[in-house]
Amino acid sequence: MLNDTSAPEFILLGFPGLQKFRVLLFLTFLMIYLFELLGNALIILISNIDAGLRIPMYFFLSNFSFLEMCYTSVTIPRLLRDLLTGSHAISFQVCLTQMYFFFFFGTTEFFLLATMAYDRYLAICHPLQYPMLMDNHTCACLALGSWLSGFLTPFLPITYISQLPFNSSNQLDHFFCDTAPFIKLSTGNTFMANAMVFLVSAVVVLMSFLLTLTSYTLIVSTVCRIPSASGKLKAFSTCFSHLMVVTIFYGTVIFMYLCPHFGRASEMDKVVSVFYVIITPVLNPIIYTLRNKDVKRALQKVLNQVKNKSGLMDAFKE
């Protein structure tokens, strides 16, 4: 990506009003990041170790957990470095790279959320045909399709943005390289760049949102026809956690990328960005472990196995 620019690097302003709390912010974000990494890694480990969790629902959850680890690793380590060193400089090429991978993993997340909703629809609405409709080959194709779509989607808008001229202010009013504040610094005609980002975001977000909404509408319709209260509760419990993640993630992203920016303070954008960049990913391991009986059972089983092995080792030493 070539660019005729006299600003070889940008300055990420981050949270200028909170500079005196820099150490506190660093420790807070570091703890959240480590918890998110360990929590999602634990979900992946348990889903692959426990034979009872080797079903499509947990296959997609493993993909989603790995995706969340990649998604947060695009922005949080850089933010931590800036808070720790006080240096907020980032080169033009690194900024574009961060922007590309942020939208790569973000787009993949939308498609994976829609895929997980479709999986729950088949499991609840078509339980007898479910093993045949969602076999290993279908699961692999749906997961691969989500990752490949996410990989290809940002190419055109990011390539176009890279050709914009930047030769005036290089202060980027955000804590990572997001499209809106980045394009705002360009001295050229930015209409096409903004239109392209909006169009791609609208297609990805609305398409995946409609697929997810349709799946849950059919699920609710089916569950309401279940005669027993315990059957309804069991059916809702299998998709409640997923629905929580979907609601928070879609709500914040729609506000950021599909709602008009005019008259909106940049500080508000940063606060909302913290939710879908930092807060939402850390909710994934909390929701899927604390609210999921299968995962808690598998975790307890693994802990018991570790405890038994430890006991055997101590007995052998004696």
Rank of each mutant, 00 (worst) to 15 (best):
P165E: 06
L142D: 01
V274Y: 01
A195H: 04
N63Y: 11
T179P: 15
D314A: 13
L133S: 03
I32A: 06
F249Y: 13
P131S: 09
L148K: 06
H242R: 00
T190H: 03
K309E: 13
T97Q: 14
F26D: 01
S47C: 11
A195Q: 11
L233C: 14
G17A: 12
S91E: 09
Y130W: 09
K184P: 00
Y288G: 02
I286D: 01
L206H: 04
V223G: 09
L128K: 15
F60M: 11
T217I: 11
V94Y: 09
G311C: 02
L34A: 08
I161M: 15
T75N: 05
Y257S: 05
A51R: 15
A89R: 15
E68S: 10
P165V: 07
T190Q: 13
F236G: 04
S208Q: 01
L67S: 06
Y100N: 03
A265S: 14
T28F: 15
R81L: 14
F64A: 08
Q163S: 15
M313S: 10
V23F: 10
F59P: 00
I248S: 03
V200G: 01
L30H: 06
A229K: 10
I279A: 05
L172W: 07
M116L: 09
C139G: 01
P227D: 10
L144E: 04
K293P: 01
T28L: 15
I124Q: 12
N170V: 03
P8Q: 02
V203R: 00
T214W: 14
L258I: 02
S186N: 05
D119H: 12
V271S: 04
L24I: 12
S65C: 13
F102M: 10
L122C: 11
L122A: 13
C239A: 11
L42H: 08
T72P: 03
Q98T: 10
K184M: 09
K296E: 07
Y276I: 00
S221M: 09
R22V: 04
N284I: 11
N308E: 09
L142K: 03
V282P: 00
T247W: 07
D119N: 14
S65L: 03
T75A: 12
L42Q: 08
A140I: 08
F175P: 06
T214Y: 12
Y121I: 05
T187Q: 13
M313D: 05
F59A: 14
L84K: 13
V302F: 14
T217E: 11
I76Q: 06
I248Y: 09
L53G: 03
T217H: 14
E68F: 03
Y250T: 00
M268E: 09
V253F: 02
P154Q: 05
C224D: 12
G86A: 10
F262L: 13
F209Q: 03
S162Q: 15
L133Y: 07
M31R: 04
H174K: 12
T280V: 12
S201E: 02
R264H: 05
V246C: 07
Q129A: 15
I286R: 00
A229E: 14
S62Q: 08
P281Q: 02
